[in-house]
């Protein structure tokens, strides 16, 4: 436990994405950080480690920072867990921030968890909202995060240790352009000799990860066991092409080889938040349902009137999914 009153300011880890730009999520968080800093009458501080870091300063300034603490060095071109953790932890020890916010990215989550361990403080992942509250102590950061597959929201505080830390998913807050009249720039010298225990063999190849095909789609067509055969399942792909939709499904069609793995929706797959989701022959086990409940409209087709999917659907169609699929295909096929 540390003395909370020694800690002040709101920090944001401004991650540099693919050594080319400030991560949009970090800029969004600066907007929210600005709001909190104003309420507390404290500074909003951006922390940045990068190669040729100077090029990113103006963008960070435009998004509301009062102060930028940065380090620029070729060794900082890519995230390195030992170097980044050591440097950022040293910054925290020196300046003692009260709140430290990170983008919920591969780097942000990793670094935040390591820093929280070193500071023996709390970290809340993927928060949906944060606000200052006096309900449990003066000006405590009250975070709101989903748990149990989103069925439950929990509110969490970190009352006795500092900094109060959390990671925030992209798109949670909006970017805002606010240029402060004066921005203090603190350049730290890179002076670290940390050896990696991980040896890279040969030359790595560039491999940008495929962005999920499901999470941003407006219309998703879900297929399950009830479609019975690969031929029927192929018709679902056909309908998706005709309607600019995207196919997703349960575990079962993957096991049967009807659909590739990355299209799984649910607890061990993707979570969708489409405008419209239509499920074809899906019974609605919890493992699947948690992945669709953020969709605005849900239409379920199943021949079993007691299928649990109907409990989470807006429109319930008791019918054989393949008959419905044939009818829709006929309508949407342009001749």
């Amino acid at each position: 436990m540390n003395n909370e009153s020694d800690y002040k300011d709101i920090w944001v880890f401004t991650e540099i994405k693919d050594h080319v730009k400030v991560h949009d999520c970090a800029l969004e968080i600066l907007g929210k950080g600005r709001e909190i800093a104003d309420k507390l009458g404290q500074n909003l501080v951006a922390v940045m480690l990068a190669l040729d870091a100077e090029q990113y300063i103006s963008v960070i300034e435009e998004h509301g920072a009062d102060k930028i603490i940065y380090m620029s060095h070729p060794e900082l071109k890519h995230y390195h867990e030992r170097i980044f953790t050591k440097i950022v932890h040293e910054f925290v020890e020196e300046y003692k921030p009260s709140i430290f916010l990170f983008p919920s990215t591969e780097v942000g989550n990793a670094l935040a968890a390591r820093i929280a361990y070193r500071c023996k403080t709390g970290l809340v992942s993927d928060v949906l909202n944060l606000e200052l509250s006096d309900e449990y102590g003066e000006n405590l950061l009250l975070t709101d995060k989903p748990a149990y597959g989103g069925n439950i929201h929990v509110k969490i505080i970190c009352p006795n240790t500092r900094p109060q830390m959390c990671t925030i998913t992209m798109g949670t807050f909006k970017k805002t352009l606010i240029q402060k009249a004066t921005v203090e720039i603190i350049k730290k010298e890179f002076n670290h000799d940390v050896q990696s225990k991980i040896k890279i063999i040969g030359t790595p190849t560039r491999k940008d990860k495929p962005t999920s095909t499901l999470s941003d789609v407006k219309f998703v067509l879900g297929g399950g066991n009830g479609l019975v055969s690969k031929d029927n399942f192929n018709k679902l792909f056909q309908l998706a092409r005709l309607t600019s939709g995207q196919v997703g499904g349960t575990r079962r069609p993957i096991l049967d080889g009807w659909m590739p793995e990355h299209l799984q929706i649910g607890i061990s797959g993707e979570t969708i938040s489409s405008d419209l989701y239509i499920s074809f022959g899906i019974s609605g086990a919890i493992q699947h349902v948690v992945g669709i409940k953020d969709s605005k409209t849900i239409v379920a087709i199943n021949k079993d009137p007691n299928a649990p999917i109907f409990r989470v659907a807006d429109y319930c169609i008791i019918a054989d999914a393949k008959d419905i699929l044939d009818g829709l295909l006929e309508y949407f096929t342009v001749d």
């Binding site: 929990v154 509110k155 969490i156 989470v312 319930c316 169609i317």
Partner: peptide
């Protein structure tokens, strides 16, 4: 260090409207 101060159940409020009629109407 972290303390859960509130837990809320998110209800999955849906219309649950059953569409009746023939297969063509559905």
């Amino acid at each position: 260090p972290t303390r859960v101060v509130k837990t809320e159940k998110i209800s999955l409020q849906r219309k649950n409207e059953i569409i009746k009629g023939t297969i063509t109407e559905k």
